[in-house]
Design a protein around this nucleic acid. Structure first.
Lengths: 233, 233
DNA sequence: CGTATTATTGACTCCATTCAAAGATAGTGG
DNA sequence: CCACTATCTTTGAATGGAGTCAATAATACG
């Protein structure tokens, strides 16, 4: 039930995310060619799926606006949040190995995204020279991000949460958002799940950070007041 | 100081790992072409590096025999073990994003490996049709493996260690080794580091598993006696 | 306005860490 | 071959931090 809105004013070549998203390493001509096969600005609502774990691989996607979560359900049905996706970030590479997705991507609010259909990937790779290399780079970026996540998911609750906030701040900054003032895309429960903590511990640690003067927190709203201090944890 | 031994009897086309390694999805002709650019059977000793974190990206590698560890050193110099590499597994995709490696790969014993030099990747991708797709699949496999690692690295010490052993067992089985009798490639210290535990806890949990009859452990040697029981944890 | 969801805070418990000591093994050199 | 050392492993006791259970508060949403 995705609502495809083909707005010709919004294609890759005049998207404000061109320096982060798939086109970032391409020439003007290559971006123009890419635009002809990418479906831009598909809009879905909070809670809806971009794709589901187990579905046949059908497309690579790029978040255009809003945030989404990558979720894996284990054999006992427990939810594990693997990652938060921000605008300009790509997803779907996990579907290439066995031609089916290893996780689900769920919108955390109303979002828009773009898709590169699976059946187009081979042709764009052969027709647009830079695309193969760029897809490998994005895939590699996903690998590095998950390597860094493994590194961050150790240590105390304070360490984990501090690293989570710093990572979020850095990525928001890279996308032109404020790195010190933002809304958490996840609930305490979801953050806890992501970091291997209980939601009570997440809540307590956030107020603890506030007491120490590192940040100001009011439900989802976060204002980081001492990023250096936070990094020192 | 890598010792390149070009043994023409051992190329991709008659390697026993052809069903797991890079050639697994290729035709006979494609494998033959691949063999001309892959350097086979480079041998290094325990503790030596295949590549180092921060080095310029120079090659993708495939472990041929023996085991290796992927290690990331954080800004404070702490070692984080990201993964254990078994025969037939590829590494180096983390180097594609920024043209430098995000982690080091270190031999855990004497190993041999094969390399696809960086400067050959573009040409083999364009000359051997199946290779691009196969590289994407391997890259995707790495992503899924690290997603699964994020899922496993939660819960109690028992859960983490059980999942670690099961994962190792499954991968050994896929490579033709015994899934119930093997030597741990890592020390207690390294396992603990990998799972976010102390080495004392790893040691205690292993003896606890032995007491419960799940396995028999003698230093590095492991004999799994009740894989079903282990999975039930 | 009422209900469901999300978040905060407190008290108690338990599991993993920490600190400490001793035992086992592999590798080295005399 | 044995002694010697370094490394790895096991085990114990005490501590502390995160989990659990529970109650209340704040917010969002229909």
């Amino acid at each position: 039930m995705n609502n495809v809105i083909k707005d010709f004013k919004v294609s890759c070549k005049n998207c404000n995310l061109d320096s982060i998203c798939l086109p970032r390493g391409l020439s003007q001509q290559e971006i123009e060619n890419l635009s002809t096969v990418v479906n831009n600005n598909i809009v879905i609502q909070k809670g809806e799926y971009i794709y589901r774990q187990g579905d046949a691989f059908s497309r690579l996607v790029a978040i255009k606006s809003g945030t989404a979560k990558e979720v894996n359900f284990d054999s006992q049905g427990n939810e594990h949040i693997l990652n938060v996706l921000l605008p300009g970030e790509l997803a779907g590479f996990d579907g290439l190995y066995l031609d089916k997705y290893n996780c689900s991507v769920i919108a955390l609010e109303q979002i828009s995204f773009c898709e590169l259909p699976a059946e187009q990937i081979d042709t764009v790779c052969s027709q647009i020279p830079g695309i193969t290399r760029e897809l490998f780079k994005h895939s590699s970026e996903v690998i590095i991000a998950s390597q860094n996540r493994v590194v961050s998911n150790k240590g105390s609750a304070e360490t984990k949460l501090a690293l989570f906030l710093i990572n979020l701040s850095d990525r928001l900054k890279a996308r032109g958002f404020s790195p010190v003032e933002f809304n958490l895309p996840l609930t305490r429960q979801e953050i806890g799940d992501h970091l291997g903590l209980t939601f009570e511990t997440v809540s307590r640690t956030l107020t603890h950070f506030q007491d120490k003067g590192y940040l100001r927190v009011q439900r989802k709203y976060i204002e980081i007041k001492d990023l250096t201090g936070l990094r020192s944890i």
